[in-house]
Design a protein around this nucleic acid. Structure first.
Lengths: 125, 125
DNA sequence: GCACTGACTTGCAATATGCAAGTGACGTAG
DNA sequence: CTACGTCACTTGCATATTGCAAGTCAGTGC
């Protein structure tokens, strides 16, 4: 149950948090403005709902997103970035830059993404 | 057998290449100067050798590293970064920056890493 | 009531990971 | 020239993670 990092290396540690096939894709989708489970489940990459639920729980545990009900009866939740989550933006940008340089036929990054800064996505508090 | 990207999204595509627990840790170790299989197998995170062999083959397939014999009798190979591999540096730096900000007790980045630029690691040709 | 939606959960097969042990080419000591 | 060691992997197998489909359950619209 107890989580532990593989080593004190900062690269390895970040990958202990988001080093899988989906975590960063989910975060990207939240950056893009999707906030509900349904919106996220509808992402174009086709994530299965059990994985989505698991990744959201994990991201919440690690303090990258918050889950807050925006309506009761029925409960509807909203997933939002924390500061730590917003601070992942440079990682996403670096990944996107690499793909645009080395993989043909990728989508161009929208301007809000390419030029965005983490602080632009910090929660309002 | 045929590989295909989940979507044309550049973030998702980069993760199709290196979105797992080990690929970027292996790359980090090559950046750090480890070039032989034995050096890589000895990394402090303790990768198992079957995974290491698989990741090196994958990184080679995707053109991020090259495997070249530096000695025959017996054959000893050297793994080196290609340009595409060296261009992963900003991703590693962004991951490290995030950890240093959000995970306590991580190692500081050595200067060659924090200040390095991909071109510093391009193959000599 | 009765279908419908949104947000998950569950079951289960397929795939990936981790550990330990094995293999084979070669080099070195005796 | 035989035994032992090293390097670079491979193999076997148990466990964990992923992916797909289907099910659940609260509430809403009609």
């Amino acid at each position: 149950m107890a989580f532990s990092y593989r080593s004190p290396c900062p690269v390895a540690s970040a990958l202990d948090v988001v080093g899988d096939r989906w975590s960063l894709v989910v975060l990207r989708t939240i950056f893009a403005g999707c906030r509900t489970y349904g919106d996220l489940a509808g992402m174009s990459e086709g994530i299965s709902t059990n994985i989505l639920a698991d990744r959201l729980a994990r991201l919440e545990e690690f303090g990258l997103v918050t889950k807050t009900p925006y309506r009761m009866h029925p409960v509807r939740n909203e997933y939002r970035l924390t500061r730590a989550g917003a601070d992942m933006l440079p990682i996403l940008q670096a990944l996107a830059d690499w793909s645009l340089k080395h993989v043909p036929g990728r989508w161009a990054q929208p301007d809000w993404f390419a030029r965005g800064r983490p602080a632009d996505f910090y929660p309002a508090d």
